[in-house]
Amino acid sequence: MLMQQLLNGIVVGSVYGVFALGFTLIFGVNHIMNMAHGTIFMWGAFAGLFVVLTFDAPFLAAVLAGAIGGGLLAVVLDFFAFRPLRKRNAPEFSSIVSSIGASFILLSLAQQVTATRVLRFPFETFPVVILNFMGLRIQLLQLVIVGIVVVMVFGLLFYLYRTSYGRQIRSVAFSESTSKLLGINPMAVNFQVFFISGALAGIAGVLIGIVFNSVHFMMGEPLLLRAFVVIILGGLGSIPGALIAGLLIGIVQTLSVAYLSAGMADAIVFSLLFLVLLFRPTGLLGGATSVARVTRS
């Protein structure tokens, strides 16, 4: 059972990692703790579900719709909730409050639209194919999820560290005023950052919605809480840290359920948060340069 549960943990943890990547990216570049990230994740899942139910779209189209839906929503969120605060050089705390307000609005909207019902992707969205390999029972969907996550992470790293757009993002993260002097348009950079962050959340929403057979308006809240643990464990602003910590949390949670009790899993995950804050507040891969680590090679 250990190997099977480790596999389950890696699958769940990789999705946590993707969710946390978007969260940590905005923190690294804009220094915003975006409390509405969970609702963007949820609306991404709804966007994917909408195209599947309305157009009978295939799995990949649902993932794409989740990415576009989440990305656009994050850009709109930035426009209304964060940009006005940036213009006034408001303290970071204002952004947290603003994102909490936006989160409540988006949650209420979803509650109204769905009448609080639990929705589901149709069974045929992704066929249940079970592969048996060395005694492990692997669902094809699990392999596809890990594959999508790997592609996204390497794509994001390539974008940030190997393209001129990525250089611009890192430059704005280092100093917005300096980057302006270099001729970089911070507004365009923020557009990219929020779109990428929202797209990552949206894709995670669709994947979680399909693999857990459940799409509902509160689905982002437990993940947001776990994302806190992930980014603090991984180091605030660290992309590799978010991914590694995501996998670690996924595995710890899964093993807690398997060998202790389902009711203990959250207690153990959040105890980890306390321990990290007490003994290594900068996280596993964090440090004095953690923000730069996200944004500068």
């Binding site: 059972m1 389950n8 949670q253």
Partner: peptide, 21 residues
Amino acid sequence: SEDGILASDSDFIALGTKLAS
């Protein structure tokens, strides 16, 4: 085995694997 879940939970893969084994 005896496991408590919550109505807001949706991830039951680990628990399902536990029962399967």
